[in-house]
């Protein structure tokens, strides 16, 4: 924010390559963000063009004065300095600086952003999803979970047991979503909340992206387990995720995710001890998961619309 500018002498020395290294470094830092001094450089360049233009072939007077030497040319024969306007086209320095800054500062369009764009998401939405504050971490987390899950599942399948798979599978997307948003719904939630972009839309878009990251679990299950085990967990997983989203408007994402995890582990444990783990996938419970799935997103949208934000910052 300094308002000082480069002294004309220093600027001239730099343009002509005569400035020392320290001065050059300091001056270049300043030039990057000072339009006035950039204009000074531009003003120096035509004179530089003049300086390097071919000079007339003038014989030194001392030599000319020697006997036997030809007469020196009259001053009127010396060509005028070239008009700066006639100098060869110079690059627009402002444009050059902008291009340099673009190269350094503007983040590259990520692979995920390009992919989402190809899937039909508008560029802004794709950028928001791809730039989700903790999304990269949650994607890594979700994929790591899926890989660990595949290994664990394979071991469990070899032992003839699908119990571990059925306990953990519905929790993978829930935990991935909770990880994606953090305890408060995101580190910059307060700043995001003051922007006009609908927060519920942002959350749903990111949730969809995180669920996509958890997709490998489905594929793993399909290949490793019996057909029913491969798919039956999907409904509670979606229902729980929807419930976390809805409850996050009161408590933030982590507390609902933790509560659902505890309840699910206890329920599946009790079911397998009393009868079989398949009891938690009985039709009456599947209805419950469907209800969660149907009610969760509208609650999120309505609550976020009413409050203008989500989670604990709303209270």
């Amino acid at each position: 924010m300094s308002t000082r500018h480069v002294r004309p002498d220093d600027l001239r020395a730099w343009v002509h390559g005569e400035a020392d290294a320290v001065t050059s470094m300091s001056l270049e830092q300043h030039l990057l963000r000072c339009a006035q001094c950039q204009a000074g450089v531009a003003a120096e360049l035509p004179s530089m063009a003049y300086a390097v233009s071919p000079l007339p072939d003038v014989t030194p007077l001392s030599d000319a004065a020697r006997p036997g030497q030809p007469e020196p040319p009259a001053l009127s024969d010396v060509p005028d300095a070239p008009d700066p306007l006639d100098a060869p086209d110079l690059p627009d320095l402002a444009a050059v600086w902008t291009a340099v800054r673009d190269e350094i500062e503007v983040p590259r369009v990520s692979v995920l952003e390009r992919l989402l764009g190809r899937l039909g998401l508008p560029p802004g939405d794709a950028m928001l999803v791809a730039a989700a504050p903790a999304l990269r971490g949650s994607w890594i987390c979700a994929v790591a979970l899926a890989v660990a899950f595949a290994v664990g599942g394979a071991v469990a399948a070899r032992n003839g047991s699908v119990m571990i798979f059925l306990v953990v599978a519905p929790l993978v997307p829930v935990l991935a979503v909770a990880t994606a948003f953090g305890p408060e719904g995101g580190p910059a939630l307060e700043q995001e909340s003051s922007a006009p972009y609908p927060l519920a839309r942002l959350l749903l878009l990111r949730t969809a992206a995180v669920l996509l990251a958890a997709l490998p679990v489905v594929l793993v299950g399909q290949f490793v387990f019996p057909e029913s085990a491969a798919w039956v967990w999907l409904l509670p997983a979606l229902g729980f995720t929807a419930a976390v989203l809805a409850l996050s408007t009161w408590f933030g994402p982590w507390r609902p995710a933790s509560a659902i995890t505890v309840v699910w582990v206890i329920a599946t444990g009790a079911a397998s001890r009393l009868d079989t783990i398949w009891a938690v996938f009985a039709p009456q419970y599947l209805v419950l998961y469907v209800l969660m799935l149907l009610i969760g997103p509208p609650v999120l949208v309505l609550r976020a619309r009413r409050l203008g934000t989500i989670g604990r910052i709303a209270s």
Binding site: E105, P107, A131, P133, A188, Q191, A195
Partner: peptide, 29 residues
């Protein structure tokens, strides 16, 4: 425009990337 007291920033973002991200939320399409 709002600058909160408690500042939170996404991990790994540069200053430009964060302000750019907020600009998208503020409908700079």
């Amino acid at each position: 425009g709002y600058q909160p007291q408690e500042l939170g920033f996404p991990r790994g973002f540069s200053a430009f990337a964060f302000v750019n991200y907020m600009a998208v939320l503020k409908e700079w399409a």
